[in-house]
Each structure stands twice: as structure tokens, then as C-alpha cells.
């Protein structure tokens, strides 16, 4: 039986900075998961992933990551994505220390 599709976001690392970015519904790359497009349809997800992969001059390694709707936009499902949207736990470096946007 095909597995039921779970909501996704398109995420990648920025080419120049290397940090984590997410694809928004209006085709921008944002540093904030909360601004990402939460994709609930499988066919649409594949299209959006292709769109992300088609921008090798901006991002590296685009993939679909599980996410769920939270109070303030998409939230991670897996702890790996939680670290990616926050930064390392041993120092206040990475996203948790920055608020700037692209």
C-alpha cells in the first residue's frame, strides 16, 4: 500500500554562506522555517523540489523535509530538522544567534 503523503518543506543550504534555507511559496529562499511553504500534496512537492534543484547558483543539496503546521508556520518533525533550524547545541551560533533575512 502506498504510504500516505506527509507535509513537507523544500530545504537546502545556501551556496555562498552554507547555512540552511527554505523555499517560500513566492519562490524566495528564506532563513526561517516559519516562512517556508508547507506542501501537502505529493505531486506539488515534486514540482517544488525540482524548482529548488533548478537553482544551483543559489543553493546546494535541495531536499524535501518532513514538517507540520505549527502556530507560527511550519515546524520540524524530526530532531535533525530542529537542529538545522536552530543551530548547534554547544554554542549559541548559527540561526539561533541571527535574525537577518535574505
Amino acid at each position: 500500500m502506498p504510504r500516505e503523503f506527509t507535509p513537507k518543506v523544500v530545504t537546502a543550504n545556501a551556496l555562498l554562506e552554507g547555512d540552511v534555507v527554505y523555499l517560500t511559496a513566492d519562490d524566495r529562499w528564506t532563513r526561517h522555517l516559519s516562512e517556508a511553504e508547507l506542501i501537502t500534496d505529493e505531486a506539488h512537492a515534486q514540482l517544488r523540489l525540482l524548482h529548488g534543484e533548478g537553482q544551483p547558483d543559489h543553493v546546494v543539496g535541495a531536499y524535501l523535509a518532513d514538517a507540520r503546521q505549527g502556530l507560527d508556520g511550519p515546524e520540524p518533525v524530526h530532531f535533525r530538522e530542529e537542529f538545522r533550524r536552530t543551530g548547534p547545541s554547544n554554542y549559541r551560533h548559527g540561526k539561533q544567534a541571527e535574525t537577518r533575512d535574505v
Binding site: 543550504n13 540552511v20 548559527g94 540561526k95
Partner: peptide, 9 residues
Amino acid sequence: GLYLQLHAY
């Protein structure tokens, strides 16, 4: 020696 990790190169 240049890798791409979780949060950065």
C-alpha cells in the same frame, strides 16, 4: 578539505 555540514561549510 571543504565539506558542507548541517549549518555551514
